[in-house]
Nucleic acid binder design. Structure first.
Lengths: 187, 187
DNA sequence: TGTTTCATGTAAACCGTTACATGATTCA
DNA sequence: TGAATCATGTAACGGTTTACATGAAACA
């Protein structure tokens, strides 16, 4: 889901400026699933406006750029509905940590345990933030669903890492001989 | 972790061609955590070679391009070790499905349930593939760790979606009034 | 006094995907 | 006969980040 779709989604809930969209993404209920910078939000809004999917009401301000409060046009609402009903792309979990663990035999066992414990702390902090988000303010059904999903995954990650933080101090069972994989076919 | 780091990692386990790296990524134990296309792998290998981190032994073939079997140089091994010991970037879960659920109030309840059930099927299939990978061939410690982590997350996702596939048929409890979020600060 | 908040935007750089080009061999 | 396998690479395109530019007001 690209930044254009994201903007459309936020605006479907109510008018907002580019600045507010950024805020919502990084501090609001979206923070755990999405990120976007000004450098992609502002151009996206311009393009959406050029396509007639959103429109801006400009509010002059002194000492800083005019505030542009965007809202969906009927065509924009229609376009967003179409995005929602499409088949979404596959979910992706990208983890630099897992990458490092994949090749961790090149690392010392203490270094490895330290990394696992670091990630564990990170996930616990993330979990706390999610619980805080969920309980500190009333959320829509969709937001609850997403936060609940996120909490489930984070909880599973914590359990897994916790059970491995202790285990990993032990030496590896076998020296893992060199191995070339014979897998399927490249496309 | 970018494609260059990925290539370095694969080559740290043993020499390989670009074609084989692609195969390993999409069918081997990496398949659930990473993806990369030829369009990024070949240029990455060229750049790594230019930087002296890998070197190629060329094997002439008839009827198709010469095979270039890459292996790590000592500098490459050092560079990879340095990548491994760095603090990894934050883990990211990107989900078009969750995005759609976030705004699913604009969707009919049957459509929503159908989407949840579709994702459920996808995750069950993914889980089966992971179990198959884990049991069908001997894996290194790192690969087991990663697959185990992945299985934990996928299992949690399945449990969550399963418990919500039934619930979501019920009507929403409250009409969810319009709400503007007052969150922290944009950077 | 210095940092954070509000507010928008552009330009360069980066990284990656998709599509294309080539072509023999093996499998169904 | 047609698809898949092996094998490398380039070009065009797309999307995003990072850094920069501007500047007042409020807060600590």
């Amino acid at each position: 889901m690209d930044v254009k779709a994201l903007c459309l989604g936020v605006l479907a809930k109510g008018p907002a400026t580019g600045y507010e969209i950024k805020k919502l993404i990084q501090d609001g209920p979206y923070q755990h699933f999405i990120e976007a910078s000004f450098g992609s939000i502002y151009p996206s809004l311009s393009r959406l406006a050029a396509e007639g999917l959103i429109e801006a009401r400009t509010e002059p301000l002194e000492g800083r750029p005019d505030k542009k409060i965007y809202s969906l046009t009927p065509q924009g609402r229609e376009a967003f509905r179409s995005i929602l009903s499409r088949d979404p792309p596959e979910d992706k979990f990208r983890s630099g940590f897992l990458f490092q663990m994949m090749f961790a035999d090149a690392l010392g066992p203490e270094e490895k345990t330290a990394k696992i414990e670091g990630k564990l702390a990170e996930y616990r902090a993330r979990h706390a933030r999610m619980v805080e988000k969920r309980t500190s303010q009333p959320l829509s059904e969709g937001e609850l669903f997403c936060l609940g999903f996120g909490e489930s995954l984070v909880t599973a990650a914590i359990a897994y890492l916790d059970s491995h933080a202790r285990r990993s101090a032990a030496p590896a069972p076998s020296p893992a001989p060199a191995r070339r994989v014979r897998a399927g076919t490249a496309r």
